[in-house]
Simulated scan of single mutants.
Amino acid sequence: MTIMDGARSPERRKQDVLDRLERETDIWVASADSHGVPCLVALWFVWDGEALWMATRPGNPTGRNLRIGRRTRLALGDTRDVVLIDGGVEVHGADEVPAAAAEAFHAKTGWDPRNDSPTYAYYRVRPRSVQAWHEVHELPQRHLMRNGTWLV
Score class of each variant (00 low, 15 high):
97 V>E: 05
139 L>Q: 07
86 D>T: 05
116 D>H: 11
130 V>R: 07
116 D>R: 09
111 W>R: 15
117 S>E: 10
92 H>K: 03
133 W>Q: 03
142 R>T: 03
80 R>H: 14
136 V>Y: 03
113 P>I: 11
78 D>A: 07
128 R>Q: 15
147 N>Q: 15
140 P>H: 05
93 G>I: 09
151 L>P: 03
113 P>R: 11
133 W>I: 02
84 L>G: 02
118 P>R: 00
91 V>R: 15
106 H>W: 15
140 P>W: 04
132 A>Y: 13
113 P>K: 09
110 G>K: 12
109 T>L: 11
100 A>G: 00
125 V>F: 11
89 V>K: 05
81 D>T: 00
116 D>F: 09
85 I>R: 03
142 R>F: 02
149 T>H: 12
148 G>C: 05
124 R>V: 08
127 P>A: 12
102 A>T: 08
92 H>R: 10
83 V>L: 06
141 Q>C: 04
147 N>H: 15
78 D>L: 01
119 T>P: 07
84 L>P: 01
134 H>E: 12
149 T>Y: 02
79 T>M: 05
114 R>S: 06
97 V>A: 04
99 A>W: 00
86 D>H: 13
140 P>M: 06
116 D>V: 07
96 E>N: 10
130 V>G: 05
90 E>Q: 13
112 D>Y: 09
146 R>W: 07
150 W>I: 13
108 K>G: 06
114 R>H: 10
94 A>F: 10
108 K>I: 13
79 T>Q: 07
127 P>T: 14
112 D>S: 14
86 D>G: 06
86 D>A: 09
92 H>N: 01
79 T>G: 12
125 V>M: 09
116 D>I: 00
142 R>P: 02
95 D>M: 09
149 T>N: 04
98 P>C: 06
145 M>H: 13
91 V>A: 09
110 G>S: 12
127 P>N: 12
136 V>C: 00
91 V>H: 10
130 V>M: 07
96 E>A: 11
79 T>K: 01
86 D>Y: 08
101 A>G: 09
139 L>C: 03
132 A>W: 10
125 V>L: 08
112 D>G: 07
148 G>E: 02
115 N>T: 15
121 A>H: 14
91 V>D: 06
86 D>C: 01
96 E>W: 02
127 P>M: 13
78 D>W: 08
128 R>W: 14
125 V>W: 08
146 R>C: 05
103 E>T: 12
122 Y>K: 05
79 T>D: 13
107 A>P: 00
126 R>L: 14
